[in-house]
Deep mutational scan, measured.
Amino acid sequence: MKVIFLKDVKGKGKKGEIKNVADGYARNFLFKQGLAIEATPANLKELE
């Protein structure tokens, strides 16, 4: 799953980066902790 990092995550990505991560990792950790959001077309447009 592609995500947009909202904060730096050690060993995974830095704020503003778009990366592929495991679905479970994204849903169970990154999204719940507010560290990333899903890289949907709408979210990508907001990032620009």
Rank of each mutant, 00 (worst) to 15 (best):
N28F: 11
L35S: 04
K2Y: 15
D8N: 12
G16L: 04
A36P: 00
N20M: 15
P41K: 10
K14H: 09
L35N: 02
L35V: 05
L47R: 08
K7A: 14
N43G: 08
I18K: 03
K2P: 09
V3H: 01
L6Q: 03
L47F: 13
G11L: 04
E38K: 08
D23A: 15
L47D: 07
Q33A: 11
P41A: 13
R27H: 10
K12A: 15
N20Y: 15
F5G: 00
R27E: 09
E48T: 13
N28H: 13
V3F: 00
F5Q: 01
L30S: 00
K7D: 06
G16V: 00
K14T: 08
A39H: 05
V9R: 01
E17G: 02
N28L: 11
V21W: 03
E48L: 13
N43I: 14
E17H: 04
A39Y: 13
D23L: 14
T40V: 05
K2I: 14
L44T: 08
L6E: 01
L6W: 02
I37E: 05
K10M: 11
L6F: 02
A36Q: 00
K15D: 01
G13N: 02
L44I: 14
N43A: 10
N28Q: 10
G34K: 09
K12T: 11
D8E: 07
K12P: 01
R27K: 11
K7E: 09
E46W: 15
K15Q: 09
G34P: 00
N43T: 10
Q33T: 09
K15P: 04
G24T: 14
K10S: 09
G34N: 09
K32F: 07
E48F: 14
N43M: 11
N20F: 15
L47Q: 10
G34L: 06
E17W: 03
K2Q: 12
V21K: 00
D8V: 03
I18V: 13
L35W: 10
N20V: 15
I37T: 06
Y25R: 06
M1R: 07
A36Y: 01
G16D: 05
K15I: 09
E17R: 02
A42F: 10
A42M: 10
L35G: 01
A39I: 05
P41W: 13
F29M: 08
E46K: 11
E48A: 14
G13V: 06
Q33W: 15
A39L: 07
